[in-house]
Amino acid sequence: MLFFRGNKIDTASLKETLISSTKNNKVSLLLNFPNNPTGYSPTLEEANLISSVIKEVAEMGIKVCVITDDAYFGLFYEDDIYKESIFSLLADIHENVLAVKVDGATKEDYSWGLRVGFITFAGKGLEKRHTDALEQKLMGAVRSSFSSSSKLSQALVIKALKSDTYDSEKAEFEKIMKDRYLKVKEILEKRTNGLKLQEYPFNSGYFMNFKTPSGFNEQLRVELLKHGVGTISLGDTSFRIAYSSVDKEDLEDLFQIIFTCSDNLQ
């Protein structure tokens, strides 16, 4: 499946992939917005198109399990982004669609070390016997993987949510993240070097992602380590930068190091 066609999410490719990936009349789909690694969230129009595609597939008699990974939910930097979880469009869309919302405090509330998450199920026509079965299956998966979660982390998150300053503190961090995002946009708009790196669309989250020539991303990652810069190469042509963890005043230097190293590599 192609994620983008031009600067938009490729919903035609999404539909084709869902149909071609169906086995035993069932298919699973993971929607990760804001997306890691691209740092992209759908616009209102794109969110509605994605929802329509899933409904069309369900109307063909295919049972669709849609998992919405909302780990970075709320980190929106542009006005045209769909500001709700796409789970809200899928929760009651068709009897053949099971929507599973996965989110948590780890990224949304800037508590990176706590690893506290939540899972919500929804579906048109679900009855108590269905939700009881889902709950039992989920409990079994939890017990067989990491046994039990940290009570300390949960207690800290609950205390933070009840704090009178929760909203104001979160707004402060949201502004810091948006300022860093806007600075990266400014750097990319005026750059004159590092042109082997072509940015994918990004409008949210913690990251931005470059498309590179085949194999070039790993060469660049290794070279940047010599300059004290840590990045992530994914697959053969994807190069991710977590600008969220860099102070705004240091972003110009960071990207100049990346662009210079890129130009110096053959």
Score class of each variant (00 low, 15 high):
residue 164 D to F: 10
residue 193 N to Y: 13
residue 128 K to Q: 13
residue 140 G to W: 04
residue 170 K to T: 13
residue 66 V to R: 01
residue 11 T to C: 08
residue 170 K to P: 02
residue 198 Q to K: 15
residue 48 N to K: 10
residue 64 V to P: 04
residue 91 A to R: 01
residue 229 V to A: 05
residue 10 D to I: 07
residue 36 N to K: 00
residue 96 N to A: 15
residue 204 S to I: 01
residue 251 L to T: 00
residue 96 N to S: 15
residue 111 S to E: 14
residue 104 G to S: 03
residue 138 L to C: 11
residue 128 K to N: 14
residue 177 M to V: 11
residue 258 I to S: 00
residue 142 V to Y: 07
residue 70 D to I: 04
residue 30 L to D: 09
residue 242 A to R: 06
residue 15 K to E: 12
residue 165 T to N: 14
residue 130 H to G: 09
residue 231 T to H: 05
residue 26 K to H: 12
residue 239 F to K: 06
residue 18 L to D: 06
residue 142 V to C: 10
residue 102 V to N: 03
residue 148 S to H: 14
residue 102 V to D: 03
residue 219 Q to F: 13
residue 245 S to I: 15
residue 262 S to K: 05
residue 187 I to Q: 08
residue 30 L to A: 09
residue 166 Y to T: 10
residue 137 K to R: 15
residue 162 K to C: 14
residue 27 V to R: 02
residue 177 M to A: 13
residue 80 D to V: 12
residue 148 S to C: 12
residue 67 I to H: 02
residue 250 D to I: 05
residue 214 S to A: 14
residue 242 A to W: 02
residue 166 Y to R: 11
residue 44 L to G: 10
residue 255 F to N: 02
residue 68 T to M: 08
residue 230 G to S: 15
residue 232 I to R: 09
residue 39 G to V: 05
residue 149 S to G: 14
residue 72 Y to G: 02
residue 191 R to A: 08
residue 180 R to C: 05
residue 264 N to T: 10
residue 183 K to H: 00
residue 48 N to P: 06
residue 76 F to D: 05
residue 254 L to K: 03
residue 91 A to I: 07
residue 67 I to T: 06
residue 250 D to A: 12
residue 97 V to S: 05
residue 221 R to Y: 07
residue 141 A to F: 14
residue 55 K to T: 04
residue 60 M to Y: 00
residue 239 F to C: 06
residue 71 A to H: 06
residue 22 T to L: 00
residue 201 P to N: 05
residue 181 Y to M: 00
residue 264 N to E: 12
residue 62 I to N: 03
residue 201 P to W: 04
residue 234 L to N: 06
residue 138 L to V: 10
residue 236 D to M: 11
residue 189 E to A: 13
residue 31 L to V: 06
residue 150 S to V: 04
residue 21 S to F: 08
residue 189 E to K: 15
residue 81 I to Y: 02
residue 107 K to R: 13
residue 227 H to N: 12
residue 133 A to D: 12
residue 257 I to N: 08
residue 58 A to R: 04
residue 182 L to Y: 02
residue 96 N to P: 13
residue 251 L to Q: 01
residue 250 D to L: 13
residue 82 Y to L: 01
residue 104 G to R: 02
residue 14 L to Y: 01
residue 135 E to L: 14
residue 166 Y to S: 14
residue 160 A to S: 11
residue 97 V to D: 03
residue 260 T to S: 14
residue 263 D to T: 09
residue 205 G to C: 09
residue 63 K to Q: 10
residue 220 L to W: 04
residue 166 Y to E: 14
residue 33 F to I: 10
residue 134 L to I: 01
residue 8 K to N: 12
residue 61 G to K: 02
residue 144 S to A: 11
residue 104 G to L: 03
residue 15 K to P: 02
residue 246 V to C: 07
residue 88 S to H: 05
residue 233 S to T: 04
residue 18 L to T: 04
residue 39 G to Y: 01
